[in-house]
Nucleic acid binder design. Structure first.
Lengths: 148, 148
DNA sequence: CTGAAAAGTCAATATGGTTGACGTAAATCT
DNA sequence: AGATTTACGTCAACCATATTGACTTTTCAG
């Protein structure tokens, strides 16, 4: 657990920088732990997450959105396929392309991972109220929109 | 630049998970680029940031808050000291401990790095209003408070 | 004086990423 | 039809960053 005394207060102009760091850590901690039990890492999570949200998309789409080299993707993706979590099928329109989808076990694991994150968010949103949730989203969208 | 069409909308219950990911990326991109020019990485940034905010703290404090092994810290810290960005002085009370502080050049670099992050935040806060800023902080503190 | 603590350092190792080169199958162009 | 391009897979070399383990020096505390 983080030493709360080292967290910045509302009056601290530097605070948001630390807040983002700690929030991100808190947010990834539980899924990381679940993944680690099966020898998986954060990239596996991102693959599962992307495939869950965009079933039927191609490997190249995954590559583009993850921003890694195909060699870096290859290992983890192969692993997930070998584990039966991700399924690969040729694109009916273009035989070169491979379309990705989750098996039922893959969907189950993905749901477990995302669930822990949604629970954390829901708890905080419930504490702070719906207006805070909407404001938070707006700010986060503003930040995300200037992503490189 | 991230494909904005792949960013989630306000109606998307999964959205916050992606928002955090992209916001974090956007947030670290510029400092990372500045650091890369001098052959430095994110850990150097965290060191500079911590030392800037907690001048005079010991190496062990830095170790504890960064959550890395002392061997992992050793290289980057040594580098920063060699570059004249971080200064080391023995603790007046305990001769074993080394206290860390920034040189003026170190403070300058740290300010530049943090500045880009504050600018990004200020821009978004200015767009969304002060109420949104306060709400955002509350939510982020809620998340950060459950950090492991 | 002895033992414990703070810090520095070397070494071996693991992981996760990179780029480069190459192969294969399928689509597309001329 | 034949040539070129695209999508994907894979091997290899490499590099950065982290780990654990072991050891040393200095200094504090009993």
């Amino acid at each position: 657990m983080v030493d709360v005394n080292l967290l910045p207060g509302d009056d601290d102009p530097f605070a948001p920088i630390e807040l983002i760091f700690y929030a991100f850590r808190a947010f990834t901690a539980k899924p990381d732990a679940i993944l680690a039990e099966r020898g998986l890492a954060r990239l596996h999570h991102r693959i599962l997450y992307f495939v869950a949200r965009h079933p039927g998309r191609r490997v190249s789409d995954l590559l583009a959105i993850l921003g890694v080299s195909k060699q870096a993707l290859h290992g983890p993706l192969k692993q997930l396929v070998a584990m039966g979590l991700v399924e690969v099928s040729p694109d009916p329109g273009d035989g070169r392309a491979r379309c990705l989808s989750l098996s039922s076990e893959g969907a189950e694991l993905e749901a477990r991972l995302s669930q822990t994150q949604r629970e954390l968010l829901e708890r905080v949103f419930a504490e702070q109220g719906e207006a805070a949730e909407l404001a938070w989203r707006k700010v986060m969208r503003g930040l995300a929109g200037s992503a490189p």
